[in-house]
């Protein structure tokens, strides 16, 4: 049903995976309120999510990590491996390090806070569907920990360019893309490209997580 539907109407389908009822309802309400998006299904468990993903072939999956029967990371991994374009994001209370980082490693394009306003949720989803890459100060902080020269390995150091690290540093300090662009005297698009590259490199590097963990525990 979906591919033609999607092309003809320019409406993107969204799968919600969230086990808290009211949270899920409010999210569905928020997404459905946007003209460009439509919730194609919402479920509470990982197994439901995997079968709905295969059956409904959504354009976008927004998933909680801690599900009753497993981890949302598995859902993200399945979405990344799908044979149609399917983006995914984590739906999280705090955007905490452990979940967000492994979700990004599995292929998620960042996270959306459950406390976000309805319009912000929609905006974030639209940005990702248009090929953008949202990034938060928290994620920037985690990534900086990975590439921090003094504790990480040579691999971690070489992962990012000087410019990319500069962008990451400003994001971690809380600056927005527009503010970064004017500070660095580049266009907002260039900032977006840098962020894109950072994500791409992070996904390509197989042992980033190991490096990150090593850097955190002070072994390296």
């Amino acid at each position: 049903m979906n591919n033609e539907y999607q092309k003809n109407n320019q409406v993107r389908t969204v799968l919600i995976v969230e086990d808290q009822k009211h949270t899920s309802d409010r999210l569905r309400e928020a997404i459905d309120s946007a003209r460009s998006l439509k919730v194609i299904g919402n479920c509470q468990t990982m197994s439901q999510a995997l079968s709905m993903l295969a059956n409904y072939r959504p354009d976008f999956v927004l998933t909680d990590i801690g599900l009753p029967d497993g981890s949302g990371i598995e859902v993200i991994r399945a979405a990344a491996a799908a044979d149609w374009p399917c983006e995914s994001m984590v739906f999280t209370v705090f955007g905490d390090e452990r979940n967000v980082l492994s979700a990004i490693r599995a292929g998620a394009k960042g996270y959306i806070l459950k406390t976000s306003h309805a319009k912000d949720i929609v905006k974030e989803i639209e940005i990702v569907l248009e090929g953008g890459a949202p990034i938060s100060p928290q994620i920037a902080h985690y990534l900086l920990t990975i590439v921090r020269g003094d504790t990480a390995t040579q691999e971690g150091k070489d992962l990012l360019t000087e410019r990319e690290r500069e962008v990451l540093g400003l994001i971690a300090k809380g600056y927005k893309r527009g503010e970064i662009a004017s500070q660095m005297a580049i266009t907002v698009g260039t900032v977006g490209n840098h962020i894109h590259n950072i994500y791409r490199k992070l996904n390509a590097s197989s042992n980033t997580e190991a490096v990150f963990i090593a850097g955190k525990s002070g072994i390296l």
Binding site: V93, F94, G95, D96, E97, L113, T115, S116, H117, D120, S136, P137, Q138, A140, H141, L144, T145, I171, A172, K173, G174, Y175
Partner: peptide
Amino acid sequence: LRDLGLMVDSLQMTGSVVQLLGALRRRIEP
């Protein structure tokens, strides 16, 4: 929820005060 968020941040981002303020901005901007 905001205060819990601050607690999570300060527990996880121990190194840098400016980055904690960055995280605070994200939580408080809405």
